[in-house]
Nucleic acid binder design. Structure first.
Length: 434
RNA sequence: GGGAUGUUCGUCCAGCGGCCAGGACACCUGACUGUGACACAGGCAACACCAGUUCGAUUCUGGUACAUCCCCCCA
């Protein structure tokens, strides 16, 4: 009784049909990123453990640690932001700032698997490093909006907030910084557990009933973004840092129309907290109304992390798309490319004598830019070859037998429609494209 | 890390103390020797693993592994 082979828990294999969708997602994102001038970056998935330690807060227990045979303490990267900070510090002299870069690859977190959460997951990160300009923040929001649209999503909402608005709400409720973190966690669950649930959690974390009521009132504000900002401004009057944050949000939002971000794709959401470990300014995430899938992406401004290795402040704003979630959602919603395979056409081999001509034809069509697969066994019957091509989902099969060779033609068979016709060899590529 | 539920041919499902463990789809093989699909006829193929209870376990109990989902946290 041999044990069945099995992939490691929480990690997935992606068979060709899934990979076609994933590559479509990655290509679409890459196109959008590059249209905005972002350059590609790739870093190893293994880092020295010390590089990752102390950077992401109390979730370090989720980092995969191990020791190499040579005694090096290493870790699988937890995200692509800390590696970015490392790269910035290491190659300062070779990079031109502000630096726009994107990185698409996998990260690892040792947590229990759940919907939309895996132990190995791909993210597409986009960041503008070395600029504190609100134009940079706005551009990141423009990129995210454009990318979701390019993928075919509609009805998504990007919720925006600012760390200092959150802090201001805590201050206005008489809470000190130490108490704040559990408060942020509680209010961030508003959408999930409702006002009553949040109220309960606030009380549980030691917030007075009156303060909890004020927090809830502020956090539940909704309406047109500029109106919400105005209301918050009144509620947080006298708090300079909060006022500056609100002004910053106003400025960022002001650039959005020109950057092509439709007003119905974003809201100001005072309850949005996100992973608080390193964000310092604007924070945001995009969600889909349904099906439920957590956030599709998340990000914000973090002005301290990147400079931590470099030893000088390097303000940065960026975000991470969750490729797994985009993938799962698009699969569920039937979005993305319809084809099951990448090949455009299958070329049969009629018999041993015709093998050379079939292979030659394949090269001609490949040179013309088509994706071509040939039969591999000159002894197989045509019927078997057709069946194979059909099972693979290849739309066309070509037959090059003695009759066709004599006439300088090729039979083009449409496997979906079941029709076939004879086409002059020179015109095949064109016939397949039409 | 804590918790809930689940695991039967490749896939989806049935069975439920004793069965040759059943079906559908998929797959393989047949007739057609320049043509797949449809139909037909055959065939391959499973009780996740380890203990326990029992005369007897796929079925009951416990554990393990894995999966789905929740908490935590996040993409």
């Amino acid at each position: 009784m041999s044990s069945r082979p099995q992939n490691f828990k929480g990690m997935r294999d992606h068979l060709p049909a899934a990979m076609i969708l994933r590559q479509h997602i990655i290509k679409t994102l890459t196109d959008v990123f590059e249209r905005h001038g972002f350059e590609p970056l790739q870093t190893p998935i293994i880092e020295y453990a010390r590089t990752l330690e102390g950077k992401i807060g109390d979730e370090e227990k989720l980092i995969y640690h191990f020791e190499t045979a040579g005694g090096d303490k290493v870790a699988l990267r937890y995200d692509q932001t800390v590696p970015l900070a490392r790269v910035v510090a290491q190659y300062q002299g070779q990079l031109v700032f502000p630096w726009r870069r994107y990185a698409i690859g996998q990260s690892y977190r040792g947590e229990r698997q759940q919907r939309g959460r895996y132990r190995e997951f791909w993210q597409a990160d986009v960041d503008i490093v070395g600029s504190a300009s609100p134009i940079a923040d706005a551009e990141i929001i423009a990129v995210l909006t454009e990318a979701l649209q390019a993928l075919g999503f509609s009805g998504f909402t990007t919720q925006l907030n600012h760390r200092q608005v959150l802090a201001g709400i805590a201050r206005a409720s008489g809470l000190d910084e130490a108490a704040a973190s559990s408060v942020y966690r509680a209010i961030d669950k508003l959408d999930k557990i409702g006002p009553d649930g949040v109220h309960e959690e606030l009380l549980k974390s030691g917030v007075a009933a009156e303060a909890a009521g004020r927090i809830l009132a502020m956090v539940q504000m909704h309406g047109a973004p500029m109106d919400v900002l105005e209301e918050l401004s009144e509620q947080l009057a006298g708090d300079e840092r909060a006022q500056a944050a609100l002004e910053n949000l106003r400025t960022i939002l002001g650039f959005l129309p020109e950057l092509g971000v439709p007003a119905n794709t974003y809201t100001v959401a005072p309850q949005l907290a996100r992973g608080l470990s390193y964000y310092t300014g604007v924070v945001f995430e995009s969600v889909l109304e349904s099906p439920p899938m957590g956030s599709l992406l998340g990000g914000g401004r973090y002005d301290e992390l990147v400079g931590a290795f470099a030893g000088r402040p390097i303000p940065t704003v960026g975000l991470a798309f969750g490729i797994e979630r985009l993938h799962d959602l698009m699969e569920e919603l039937g979005m993305g490319p319809a084809q099951r395979t990448i090949a455009d056409v299958f070329i049969t081999i009629f018999d041993r004598a015709g093998t050379a001509e079939s292979l030659k034809l394949a090269q001609e069509l490949r040179a013309a830019g088509l994706k071509v697969e040939t039969a591999l066994d000159s002894g197989d019957k045509l019927g078997k070859q057709f069946k194979y091509a059909d099972q693979r989902g290849i739309p066309f099969a070509l037959v090059l037998g003695p009759d066709e060779l004599a006439r300088g033609e090729v039979v083009v068979k449409n496997l979906r429609a079941g029709e076939q016709r004879s086409v002059a060899r020179a015109n095949i590529a064109a016939a397949l494209r039409s």
